[in-house]
Amino acid sequence: MPLEIAFHGMLMPGLLPVFVGCLVLMVLLDLAFGRLGLYRRVWHASLFRLALFVCLFGAAGLLLVR
């Protein structure tokens, strides 16, 4: 994975596309979990959302490391 990506003359961190992808996946999972009523079964919904995003982003970042 490149450390930096050149985009229209700007240098962006290499994990930025991974972050955006995990953010989109998190929004989809959030909608699905809300419709299924999963958030009624967790202690703190906001902490659960944050922990789920951290796990998704951490796993995706580790999968892309050389």
Score class of each variant (00 low, 15 high):
48 F>D: 10
55 C>S: 14
57 F>R: 03
53 F>R: 05
30 D>I: 01
61 G>T: 13
17 P>G: 02
21 G>L: 11
45 A>L: 02
59 A>Q: 07
31 L>R: 10
59 A>G: 02
34 G>D: 15
28 L>A: 15
16 L>A: 11
64 L>M: 14
40 R>L: 11
66 R>W: 08
6 A>C: 06
45 A>D: 10
18 V>P: 00
18 V>C: 10
5 I>D: 09
42 V>M: 08
52 L>G: 02
8 H>G: 03
27 V>Q: 10
24 V>Y: 15
22 C>T: 05
58 G>L: 02
44 H>L: 08
24 V>C: 11
21 G>K: 02
36 L>M: 12
50 L>D: 00
56 L>D: 03
59 A>V: 12
45 A>Y: 09
52 L>M: 12
60 A>V: 11
32 A>S: 13
29 L>A: 07
21 G>M: 08
21 G>N: 08
50 L>V: 13
23 L>V: 00
10 M>W: 13
21 G>S: 12
15 L>V: 08
58 G>T: 07
42 V>L: 07
21 G>R: 00
48 F>L: 03
32 A>N: 06
2 P>N: 08
14 G>F: 01
56 L>Q: 07
25 L>V: 14
6 A>V: 12
40 R>V: 07
59 A>Y: 04
19 F>I: 03
29 L>Y: 03
66 R>K: 11
62 L>Y: 15
63 L>E: 05
55 C>W: 08
48 F>H: 03
60 A>F: 12
65 V>E: 14
48 F>M: 07
55 C>Y: 06
16 L>C: 02
30 D>K: 04
18 V>Q: 09
51 A>V: 06
7 F>C: 13
32 A>C: 08
30 D>E: 13
53 F>N: 06
60 A>I: 07
38 L>K: 06
